[in-house]
Amino acid sequence: SNRMGGFRCRHNALCLGKLNGTGEALAFGSLLLEGHPIRLTGQDVERGTFSHRHMVIHDQKTAERHMPINEIRDDQAQFCVHNSPLTEQACLGFEYGYSLTDPRMLIIWEAQFGDFVNGAQVIVDQFISSAEKKWQRSSGLALFLPHGNEGLGPEHSSARLERFLQLSADENMVICSPTRASQIFHLIRRQMNQTFRKPLIMMSPKSMLRLPASRSPISRFLSGGYLNVIDDTRFEEAGGDRGDVRQVILCAGKVYYDLANRRDTVDRKDVALVRIEQLAPFPAGDVQKVLDQYPNHEQITWVQEEPRNHAAFFYVERCMREMLELEIDDITRVASPSPSGGSTAMHEQEQQEIVLAAIDGGGGKSRTASNRSPQNSKKTSGGKKTAPSN
């Protein structure tokens, strides 16, 4: 009955014109109708770790398996889904090999939590990131890695985004962190509809699957495509003058919603929030186009919820400096050998300090990194200076 309730919730969301976790299922269904078979494996993938998928229904009386997604139309391609054990190296290695045999099939391996990809790092290093350079072998394998610092402790918070970004070069793989249901839909479809094959690393959402703010109206599914950069939506939805903006905050992932909630609460009209949804290859041109919309900005700040030596800061800082000749400030948790702490209360306090430091200009320096000084500020390509974070 709980599962049927879940399907009713999906139907109600569709009727209301707002979709959240269903974006993935819509992408799968549309690809199957276009003739692309899909293979999904990983830990608890039939149900989905966060009870968001339910691709397989089991009859409690007969134990019969039922997959509604394979009954859309008689001439559709087939969807195969298999729960796999916690042997990440063996499973990911098998799926990588499978992806080489049929480029017309979407092959996905999903970790129960992104942290578990640690057990398959040798496959990432030796094959996924480098096989095209070493052996001219192309793969369209997709890795779905739930990622987000949500107070669940150091073993259930990080897909080690920084490692994938360090391995990223020469357009060897695509690394994305979508923050909308429609973005997930378009990203999955793009993976199969492009004319080449590259590995896709998706820092997939956890709490965002049920976050009302991350829902998308049906119109965003019906038109457009994946947005590598999302400009501040406030100006489209509530109006305002982009000329009033003095600080542009760049971010990726769910921290955007924390920042947006605080920004709107205190009504900071001089702060714009820009999401970088594709981190690699870095969309420098798209970033520059968005920054050009804010002619009076004086400061560009990267904000992340992860420790400073984790996630995307060092990668983004280098890309901004080398590709756009722009210096950026940063607000993060302090550098740490661990992806997160083990205390939920401490996590919430640190998260609040990051948000306050970014939006209000306050917050505790003991837990937020703000490492530039006025004398180290450098000119941007437009001749402006980036002010230090407070």
Rank of each mutant, 00 (worst) to 15 (best):
residue 344 T to W: 06
residue 54 H to Q: 14
residue 306 E to M: 14
residue 120 A to D: 01
residue 46 E to G: 14
residue 129 S to K: 04
residue 326 L to I: 15
residue 26 L to M: 14
residue 33 L to D: 08
residue 311 A to T: 09
residue 132 E to L: 09
residue 325 E to Y: 06
residue 297 H to P: 01
residue 236 E to V: 05
residue 32 L to G: 09
residue 179 T to N: 09
residue 12 N to A: 13
residue 355 V to F: 13
residue 124 V to Y: 00
residue 340 S to Q: 11
residue 194 Q to I: 08
residue 43 Q to M: 13
residue 240 G to N: 04
residue 114 G to N: 12
residue 168 S to W: 00
residue 51 S to T: 10
residue 325 E to M: 08
residue 97 G to Q: 08
residue 349 Q to L: 15
residue 193 N to R: 15
residue 112 Q to R: 10
residue 316 V to P: 03
residue 151 G to A: 07
residue 147 H to I: 01
residue 172 N to Q: 02
residue 102 D to F: 05
residue 132 E to V: 07
residue 132 E to Y: 10
residue 277 E to T: 12
residue 42 G to R: 04
residue 32 L to C: 06
residue 357 A to D: 10
residue 269 K to R: 15
residue 355 V to G: 03
residue 292 D to K: 15
residue 305 E to F: 08
residue 176 C to T: 12
residue 46 E to S: 15
residue 247 Q to W: 00
residue 199 P to L: 01
residue 121 Q to P: 00
residue 28 F to V: 13
residue 190 R to P: 00
residue 71 E to M: 06
residue 385 K to Q: 07
residue 238 A to W: 08
residue 284 A to Y: 05
residue 230 I to L: 15
residue 51 S to M: 12
residue 279 L to P: 09
residue 204 S to D: 03
residue 368 T to L: 08
residue 208 M to R: 06
residue 72 I to A: 04
residue 199 P to Q: 02
residue 199 P to T: 03
residue 214 S to C: 13
residue 27 A to C: 07
residue 38 I to M: 03
residue 261 N to Y: 11
residue 42 G to Q: 06
residue 161 L to K: 00
residue 103 P to T: 10
residue 114 G to M: 07
residue 200 L to W: 04
residue 339 P to K: 14
residue 358 A to H: 14
residue 109 W to T: 01
residue 230 I to G: 00
residue 236 E to W: 04
residue 312 A to D: 05
residue 348 E to V: 09
residue 69 I to W: 01
